[in-house]
Amino acid sequence: MLICENISKTYKKGSFFSKKEETKVLNNISFQLQEGRSIGFVGRNGAGKSTLMKIILGLERADSGSIIFMGQNIHNLKYSQRKEIYKNMQIVFQDPQSSMNPNMTVFQIICEPVNNYYKYSIDELRNIVKDLLKSVELDTNIIDKNITMLSGGQQQRVAIARALAIKPKVIILDEALSNLDMVIQSQILKLLEDLKEKYNISLIVISHDIRVVFKLCDDIIFLENGEIKGNFNVENGVDMENTAFQKMLVF
C-alpha cells in the first residue's frame, strides 16, 4: 500500500554570510507497508523519525527517493491534488493541545475532515460525531465543550476520533502516547488495538518506547542517526543480538 524507496534528506543550516552546515537526517530509508499490517519506527529523539513522518505526509520534500501511496507518488502532486491521499492517511500528533485549535469545540474539530470530503446536514454531522465519540469511549455530552476544557487523555481521544472520522486506511501516530501518564497511556493503547481490528486500519507508529511499538505493530524498524539499523517482523521474531534493539531495551 505504501512503498518508500531510498529516501534521503539533508538539512542545510547557516545564514547568508556564514558557511552552510549540512546535517544528514535520513539516509537511504526504504520500507513497505502492506495492507492490513502495521509498521513501527523506533529510535532516539533526533534519529529522524519525525522528519520521515513529515516526508511521508508530503509536508516536507525528500532530497531523493520516492514515496508511493496507493499507486501515486505524493511528491508529484500539487497541494489540491493531495486530498485523495489524505482521505486514506491521517495523523495523530504527540501533543494534543497543540494539534487542535484551542478556539474550537469538539464538534467543530471532528467535523473539519468530514466537511472536506462529504456534504452532510448539521443533524447528520452531529450523529456522526456522536458515534465517533462513542467509538473512542468518550461521553457524548462533551460534544459542545471547548477542547481546552478536556484533560490530556480526553483530548488525545478526540484527536484519534478526528483521525478516524473519514475512515482512512492508514493512521500515523507520531509519539501519540508519550505525553500521557501511564494509566491513560495503557487505556489508549488498548483502544487503539480495538479500533485497529474494528475498522481494519493500518498504523504507522513512531515512538521511542518499544513497548508501545511492539504492542501495536507487525513490522518494526529501528532507526539510528537516520539509518535503518534493524528490521523485524512478527513472523520471524526479533534478533535478540541486534545492537539497536538492545539499546532501546530500557524499560
Binding site: Q185, R211, V234, F251
Partner: peptide, 26 residues
C-alpha cells in the same frame, strides 16, 4: 494495583518477548 496492572499490560504483546524480564534485571 491499578497502576501496576497498567504498567504490566504494556509488556504483553504478540511478539512473545517478555520485556518485563529485562526490566527486572536492571
Amino acid at each position: 494495583q491499578k497502576l501496576i496492572d497498567a504498567n504490566e499490560s504494556q509488556y504483553i504483546n504478540k511478539w512473545n518477548i517478555n520485556f518485563g524480564a529485562y526490566n527486572a534485571n536492571m
